[in-house]
Amino acid sequence: MKEFERKGLLERVDREGATVGASIPDEIEVQGEEIALREFVFEIKRRDTIPPGERERVDRAKKNLRRERLQRRQRLEAADISYEEGEELVGAIVGLDRALSALESLGEADVERQAKASDAADQKRWMNFLRQALGRDSSNARNRR
C-alpha cells in the first residue's frame, strides 16, 4: 500500500462521523476469541438499564473492544499490508467504534436516569422541608389540635 493510501484510510478511521451509517459486525475475533458482537450489543441495549451483574461483563467487553481497536489501528498504521487488507481493517475498526458507541451510550442513559431520580428525590425532600417550615405538614397540623 502506498503512503497516501494509508493516510487516507487512517483519516477515515479518525473521522468524527465515521460510525454514521456503519453497522456492528455480526462476529469479530477479539483476543483470539470469536464474539457474536452484534447479538451481544443488541442484548444489552434491549434492557433499560445494565443490571449490576452485567455491568462488569459490559465493562470488560468495552475494554477488550478498545484494545482490539487499538491493535487494528496500529496494524493499519505500521504493517506492510495491501490496500484491500487496509480497507477490511478500516471496516472492522469502524464497526468496533459503532459497537463501543452503542455500549457507552447505554452507560450515559444510566447516568442520566440516576441524575433525574436524584433530582426528583431532592425536590421531594425540599418540598417536605418547606411544608414543615411553613406549618402545612398534615402530621404537624393534627398534633396541634
Results as ranks from 00 to 15, higher is better:
Lys2His: 13
Lys2Gln: 14
Phe4Asn: 11
Phe4Pro: 08
Phe4Glu: 15
Glu5Tyr: 04
Glu5Gln: 15
Lys7Gly: 12
Glu11Ser: 15
Asp14Tyr: 13
Asp14Gly: 15
Arg15Leu: 12
Glu16Asp: 14
Gly17Glu: 09
Ala18Gln: 10
Thr19His: 08
Gly21Gln: 03
Gly21Lys: 06
Ala22Leu: 08
Ser23Tyr: 09
Ile24Arg: 03
Pro25Asn: 06
Glu27Met: 07
Glu27Lys: 12
Ile28Ser: 00
Glu29Trp: 03
Val30Ser: 00
Gln31Asn: 11
Gln31Asp: 10
Gln31Val: 00
Gln31Thr: 01
Gly32Trp: 00
Glu34Trp: 01
Leu37Glu: 01
Arg38Ile: 00
Arg38Thr: 04
Glu43Trp: 09
Ile44Gln: 02
Ile44Tyr: 02
Arg46His: 05
Arg47Cys: 05
Thr49Met: 13
Pro52Asp: 07
Gly53His: 04
Gly53Tyr: 04
Gly53Ile: 11
Glu54Leu: 05
Arg55Gln: 11
Glu56Cys: 08
Val58Cys: 02
Val58Gly: 01
Lys62Asn: 09
Lys62Glu: 11
Lys62Ala: 13
Asn64Thr: 00
Asn64Ile: 00
Leu65Ala: 02
Leu65Asn: 01
Glu68Thr: 01
Arg75Gly: 06
Leu76Tyr: 03
Leu76Glu: 13
Ala78Cys: 09
Ala79Trp: 07
Ala79Asp: 15
Ser82Val: 07
Ser82Asp: 07
Ser82Pro: 10
Glu85Met: 09
Glu85Ser: 06
Glu87Gln: 13
Glu87Asn: 08
Glu88Pro: 01
Glu88Gln: 12
Val90Glu: 05
Val90Ala: 03
Gly91Met: 08
Gly91Glu: 06
Val94Gln: 04
Gly95Thr: 02
Asp97Met: 02
Arg98Ala: 06
Leu100Tyr: 01
Ser101His: 11
Ala102Gln: 04
Leu106Ala: 12
Asp110Ser: 09
Val111Trp: 10
Arg113Met: 04
Gln114Leu: 15
Ala115Pro: 00
Ala115Thr: 07
Ala117Gln: 11
Ala117Met: 10
Ala120Gln: 05
Asp122Asn: 09
Asp122Lys: 11
Asp122Glu: 14
Gln123Ala: 12
Lys124Ala: 15
Arg125Met: 14
Asn128Gln: 13
Phe129Pro: 07
Phe129Met: 13
Leu130Trp: 13
Arg131Gln: 15
Gln132Val: 11
Ala133Gly: 10
Gly135Trp: 12
Arg136Ala: 11
Asp137His: 09
Asp137Arg: 12
Ser139Asp: 14
Ala141Tyr: 06
Asn143Tyr: 13
Arg144Thr: 14
Arg144Trp: 12
Arg145Ala: 14
